[in-house]
Each structure stands twice: as C-alpha cells, then as structure tokens.
Design a binder for these strands. Structure first.
Length: 424
RNA sequence: GGAGGGAUGGCUGAGUGGUCGAAAGCACUGGUCUUGAAAACCAGCGGUCCGAGAGGGCCCCAGGGUUCGAAUCCCUGUCCCUCCGCCA
C-alpha cells in the first residue's frame, strides 16, 4: 500500500507516476472521499471527547455521593449521535481502504518507460549460446526419448499443466534444489527456512496478492474460512515479519526457502501450453530480504547477483533485463528478470525475477524496524527473488546440455549431488 | 475428538466497572560515579491517527454486546498451553 499521507498531499503526482505502470488513479474520487473523511473524523472525535469528559464527571459525582440523575439525562442524546457518526466514519474509511489497497506500488525513477515486455531493457548478458553441430531438440522432445519427462501420466493423474519426472531426471531436479539451497546458505549468507505451503488471507493481503489477484490462486475451503496454496514462497517467508518490530541489529534478514508453488494460470490459457514452462505446480528456491530502507537498492543489485551465481555455476547463458513500467508487478518498485537461453526455442526465457518492493508490502504487513537514529518504529523494506525457478532451470539444463543422441550431460556443479552420474 | 487454562507495551508480568494507556521488572536512552568499563544510584522511555499548533481520538488477541462509563462483565471467533484419546 502507498503511504496515505503522501497520496493525500500529492494525489495528482501519484496519478502521474502510476500512469507509467498503466494504472489510472481516480484522483477526483479519492479527494472527494478524503474530504468527507476528514470532516467526519473531526466530528466523531469531538463527540467522543465530549462523552469521555461527561462520563468522568459522572464518576466523580457518584464518588462524591451526589445525585447523578440530572447528569445522566444530559448524556442521553449524545450516545445516539456518537453511534451514528461512528458508523458513517467507518463506512467511509472502509471505502478509502478498499480504494488504496487496490493501488499498485509506484515505480522507481530508474525504471524504463514502456507498456509490455517488448519494452524491457537489457542490462547485461552472460555466456554465449552454444553452437550445436546438430539440430537441438526442445525439452519435451528430449524427455520423450526415454520417457523420463511424462506429461501424459500427469494429465491422467490430475490434468493439464502438470508434469511427472522419473529416474535420473527426477534426481537431477532434486539435485538442482540442493545445489541452489547450499549456494545461497553457504556462499551468500541466507538463513534456510521451511514454511507452510498453505496460507491465510491476511498473509496474501500482506504481500499484495489479495484482494486483486484471487483468481490466480488455488483456494481451499477450510471450515468457515479458506486457506490458499502459495503461488510463491515470497508469501509465507515475507510474512514472517508481519506485525513485528525488528531490532536494527537483526537487519538485514536474509531468508531462503525451497517450496512448491501453485498457480491457477487463469489469465494465460493458450500460452506456453507445450512443456514445463508454465505449470500449475512447480518448485522454486526463493530468496527474501528484510532490510532497512536506505539499503534496499544495494540489496536489489546484490540479490540479482545471488540468482545469477546459480546460472553461472551451471554455465547457462543468460541475460539480465530491467522490467519497464508496464511489465512491473503490482507490489514492485523495480524488478530485474533473469532470462536463460533456451536452444529449443532459440530465445531467452524468464527463469528468475528479483524485486525491490520498498515499503509497499511492509506497510500492508506492518513490518517495522526500530530506527536507532529516531528510536521510532519505521517501515522496513522487503525484497524477493527467485534463486531459481527449478522446473525452468531443469529444462534449461536439458536443452543446453543435450547430446546428439538425445541424452543430457550432467553439469559439473550438479555431479556431487548426483552420486557420480554424468549423463541422464 | 473430550476436559481444563491462557492471550496486557520491544520482552516478562500485575490489574478492584469510574484520574488505567495501564504497577513492577528486564531491555533501551541520558546523567552521577569511574583512568575506562561494569555495578550502583537518579531520570526518561508504548503504538497509532487527526491537527499548522494547542490539543484531541483510538488501541490491553479479533469482532459483537451490556453500561453514562469496559483491560475488567456477557457472547462469538482465532491462536497458544496442559491432560486424555487418536495419529505420520
């Protein structure tokens, strides 16, 4: 959520900045509601003040043994007025809240302008796509050769957009997870956490998936309420600090977690239907940092490097792109995507996304730190990034490490995790 | 599933329907003392919203209710703890 004070005093500017994200901020409606709110709030608080003073008076009179009947009569009408004012005020505040909670984060000044992914800006590239002396296959074809990647059985068990791995390929998938976790914990100082894969609505509101993007989630009825399958570990891990006031000494907090992710893909029917690029269920190793505000931009660069380290270990060619305003996510102020080279598609495809959410999620979550300078609780900054999407990494390894006879060479970095297996 | 107990400031923990936003301790900040530090002593110290300010409102798990007045009484829910049963 944006800072209501800031929005209140600069509604036009907010509208202008949000336009770069393709969002129309309803300035007039907001200002109108705000003015009403102010008037009602003052009125209500005056009534409350009046009631408090009178009630105290009654208490004193009673203690002094005086007759309180006349005082009670005076107060009779006050209660009704107060109830009415309170009801009006809370209805109005709810409207304002509903409006603000649906407004995305403001892009950082450094974010390139643009409407969609076509306008993203390449920041750097790493590695060179391999020159094949045969026609490279895509991962679906490679998987079919010895049946280790099986979409049909997964479709029978569940439905479309699910996959099943077998044998050495399943092991390589697991090896990737171990390698990623070990790298982030042992080399980059992250604290590994194991978290729930189902979360409540408060957590999703905290990170920004609710209320706007409910249709992207799997929702599970549970008693009178609902739980949701996590779309990313960002949700449970970032919510570790929801409603907390963190000691400055504990910052930065750096968490890494491996979880499955579940997405309904409601808005993407027909996109990436072939292969395991876009699945309802996939594994991801996620990095999350909670930092003091002045450090978040450095942390974004650092975290991007932590994700890149995995691709470099696997010797997979990739590029880093800065997302343009129109392609930025709801909660992000700035995002770098890592795109890995896929010989099967002859394209770079997203394999990681690293974002600085600034104080946007922290405000929704009330995640604060105590600033030693001011001694006051202030909003922290939150960041998250994939390190990496495991399914997509697996298919990138398959396509980049394929041999002419349709086998897959095991990358050096994975061999310690594969019990010496060199070919899948 | 059954039976009990609990939830209060950064943390621990008192709290009688009416000067209770709340004792005390810890932590923290400042001071005295000290060559320096520790200890001791003194003082300060919750969060949030409105307001230019003066000042005021709200917050004792959450939501309702009773009352002129609720941390305190009543109802519902959530979470935690103990015991029994079941269970990977």
């Amino acid at each position: 959520m944006l800072d209501p004070k800031y929005v209140r005093s600069n509604p036009e500017e907010v509208a202008k900045l949000l336009k770069t994200k393709g969002f129309d901020f309803p300035v007039e409606q907001f200002v109108e509601l705000e003015n009403q709110r102010k008037e009602l709030q003052v009125q209500t608080e005056n009534l409350q003040s009046e009631r408090n003073t009178r009630s105290k008076g009654i208490g004193k009179a009673k203690a002094a043994g005086e007759d309180i009947q006349p005082l009670l009569a005076e107060v009779a009408e006050l209660g009704k007025q107060l109830d009415e004012a309170k009801a009006n005020l809370s209805a109005l505040q709810e409207k304002l809240e509903d409006l603000l909670v649906g407004v995305p984060n403001i892009p950082d000044a450094s974010v390139p302008e643009g409407e969609d992914e076509e306008d993203n800006v390449e920041v750097r590239t790493w590695g060179t796509p391999r020159a094949f002396d045969f026609e490279p296959k895509d991962h679906v074809e490679l998987g079919e050769l010895d049946g280790q990647l099986d979409f049909e059985t997964a479709a029978k068990i569940t439905g479309s957009r699910f996959s099943m791995l077998k044998g050495k390929l399943a092991r390589m998938h697991r090896a990737l997870i171990q390698m990623m976790l070990d790298t982030q914990t042992e080399e980059h100082g992250y604290n590994e956490v194991y978290v729930p894969y189902m979360v409540n609505a408060d957590s999703l509101r905290g990170t920004g998936q609710l209320p706007k993007f409910e249709e992207d989630l799997f929702k599970l009825p549970f008693g009178e309420r609902h739980y949701y399958l996590i779309p990313t570990a960002e949700v449970p891990v970032t919510n570790i600090v929801r409603d907390e006031i963190i000691d400055a000494a504990q910052l930065p907090m750096k968490f890494v977690s491996h979880t499955p992710c579940f997405r309904s893909e409601a808005g993407s029917t027909g996109r990436d239907t072939r292969g395991m690029i876009r699945q309802h269920q996939f594994e991801k190793v996620e990095m999350v940092q909670i930092v003091e505000p002045s450090k978040s931009w450095d942390a974004l660069e650092e975290m991007t490097g932590h994700a890149e380290a995995i691709l470099q270990k696997l010797n997979l060619p990739y590029r880093v792109v800065a997302l343009c305003g129109g392609d930025l996510g709801f909660s992000a102020a700035k995002t770098y995507d890592l795109e890995v080279w896929l010989p099967g598609q002859q394209k770079y495809r997203e394999i990681s996304s690293v974002s600085n959410m600034t104080d946007f999620q922290a405000r929704r979550m009330q995640a604060r730190w105590r600033n030693p300078e001011t001694k006051k609780p202030e909003l922290a900054h939150t960041l998250n990034g994939s390190g990496l999407a495991v399914g997509r990494t697996l298919l990138a390894v398959m396509e980049n490490y394929q041999t002419a006879d349709g086998k897959i060479e095991v990358p050096e970095a994975l061999r310690p995790y594969m019990g010496g297996v060199t070919e899948v």
